Structure formats: C-alpha cells, structure tokens
Amino acid sequence: MGKSYVVTYVLWGFGGLFGFHHIYLGRDSHALLWMVTLGGFGMGWVLEFWKIPSYVMKANRKQEDLSQSHRQKPSMSIISFFAQIIVGIYFGIVAIIGLSSLNTFYFIMLPLAVGLGIHLVASISEETSDLRKTLTAAGITSLIFYERPIAILPVSIVASIISQKNRRIKTPSVHDNFSVRAYRLGLAYLAFYMPLAYLAIHNTVLTAAYIKDIASVILDLFTSFLFFPYTVWKTFTSGYGFFQEWEKIIKLFNSLQGETAEIAYKTLGLEDGATMEEISKMYKELVKLWHPDHNPDHSEEAEKRFIEIQTAYKMLKKLKKSAEL
C-alpha cells in the first residue's frame, strides 16, 4: 500500500521534530537524526515542509527503480557536507560532555562519536557512504589533535570530506517489520543519550571545564577574524580613519579579558600582575594541596577546586604568552 501525503504531513506537524513522518516513510536513518537533533535543530524540520512530496514519491517508488540506479555514484553535495560537519561537531560535544574523562576518549570515543554522526547524515536518503573509511579518517585526525579542545572541528571536517568522497547509492534490501525497526531506533537513541546520563552521575565539573576550554578556543578564533581588518588598518594608517570605531570594540574586549584575568589571579591567591614564575610556583603548590587523591574525605570539593586552579593557570599562562608577542 502506498504512503499517504496527508498522513505524512500530519505526522510532520505533530511529531516531525522527533522524525515520526520519516519512520512512517521507512527513512529510519533520517528519523534517528531528527530524534537526536530535534528535527535538525528545528531548521531542518521547517524546511521539510516543501520536501515532503518528494519523500512520499521516493517511498512509493518500486524496488526495481532502486536496483537500476544502485551502481551510480552520487555527486558531492555541499549542503550535505556542511550538515555532516555540524552534526559531527554536535555528536562530538555530546561525547565530550559524557565521556571526556575516559583514557580512551581521543583514541576511540571522540572519533567514534563524530564518525557515526557524519555517517548518519550520509545515510538519511537513498545514499550512504563507507563507514570504515569515515571512522578511520576520524581516528587518525583525532590522534593528530590529541587533547586539544578544538579537536572536534578538524576531526569533523576531515571525516566529512572522506565520507563525501565515498558516497554511493544504497543497495536495495527488504524492509524489516515495524517492531524490528522501532527496536533498532530505540537502541540507537539510548546509545546516543547514554553519555549524557553518565555525565549526570559522574563528571559534571570536569565536563564544564572542558566545554569552557572549547568555548575559549572558538572565541579566540572568532576575535582573531573579527579584529583582522583593525590590525591591518592600524599597521598601514597609524590609527586614522573609519576604523577608529573598532578601537572601542577592542577596549571592550580588553576590559572583559582583564576581568577574567583578575578572577584567575584570585583563584590562585595572587596579586594582579604577578610574574609567570610566581604563577607557576603557586600553581604547583595548589595542585598538590587540592589534588582529589590527596583529599579522599571531600573529593567533590577537591575536584572542583583542582579544575578551577588548572583553568586559571592555563588562562594566565596564555595571557602572559600573548603579552610577550
């Protein structure tokens, strides 16, 4: 029996954010993607309003049509490529939130999470990609950027490129019944959210510090790009002209940075303007004092202080290094 346009639109309207219409049409990969991203962060769900007729036509297409086209290699899709990068980063962040404390995180967990997210996007329609090559690319890139907060970005980009280069049409197969499909989707949904459940039980403080590091790196990249015109103008015009308004923005960012540095100095128990030698000395003393292994009776407080001390030290070290350039 063919799929109905009316039923599809009704399911899109009342359960589209969770992929109900895709489940109805047999698009399980697309349904799973919508389940874990709430309809492609809402935007994908809205844009689908105009795509539903083509989805229904494809669902009603006979298997013979698929068998005639399965040997054709699809061309690279820019939209799909950027969607893969975004979802790869999203899956990577979820892994960071729940699993970043594991010793195997950069070896296994991060490339596995990013690679699976990218492959899920590659498989949402009649196309798919080579999962093994995608995971291999993610794993190698993750090792290159080992323990760097920004690692999820290059891992997602490289793995998405490899996935795009290995796109192909899915081989036609017999569809399983609804109960089997629902069981698989349920397992995949639980697997995705297990890291978040693990976070709620175990490593909240550590994850917060890691996310803060990622936000700091992204902010640095953004400000470098934002202030590039100002830097060029300052170099060649000695500070005259239209870009004088940028100086107000620069002063604002510097003031925010100064407030952050003040907090970091207080965390380490130092006066503003302490030397790098004084910072390093105090850091070593505080790390020994607040190491969780040395404070078994109040380990939660010690872990929180330990991470705050590490974050403050990294921040001040970075500021001192920037001031020397």
Rank of each mutant, 00 (worst) to 15 (best):
10 V>I: 07
15 G>P: 11
24 Y>T: 07
29 S>L: 04
32 L>W: 08
38 L>T: 12
40 G>K: 01
44 G>C: 04
57 M>Q: 07
60 N>P: 09
60 N>I: 02
63 Q>M: 14
66 L>N: 15
68 Q>N: 13
68 Q>G: 08
68 Q>F: 13
70 H>Q: 04
73 K>P: 13
101 S>M: 13
104 T>F: 10
109 M>P: 04
119 H>W: 14
128 T>S: 04
129 S>Q: 04
130 D>I: 07
131 L>K: 02
134 T>I: 12
138 A>E: 01
138 A>R: 00
142 S>A: 03
142 S>D: 08
145 F>G: 11
153 L>P: 02
154 P>H: 05
154 P>E: 02
154 P>Y: 05
154 P>V: 04
160 S>G: 08
161 I>T: 05
165 K>R: 15
168 R>K: 10
169 I>H: 09
169 I>F: 12
177 N>W: 03
179 S>T: 13
181 R>F: 03
182 A>G: 11
186 G>E: 04
188 A>E: 08
191 A>T: 12
194 M>A: 05
206 L>F: 06
211 I>C: 11
216 S>H: 02
218 I>E: 07
223 T>G: 02
229 P>C: 05
231 T>E: 14
237 T>M: 03
240 Y>T: 13
245 E>N: 10
264 A>K: 06
266 K>N: 11
268 L>Q: 06
268 L>N: 03
271 E>C: 11
273 G>N: 06
274 A>P: 10
280 S>T: 15
281 K>D: 12
281 K>R: 13
283 Y>F: 09
284 K>A: 10
290 W>C: 09
291 H>S: 11
294 H>P: 09
298 H>I: 09
299 S>G: 14
302 A>D: 01
312 A>V: 05
323 A>Y: 12
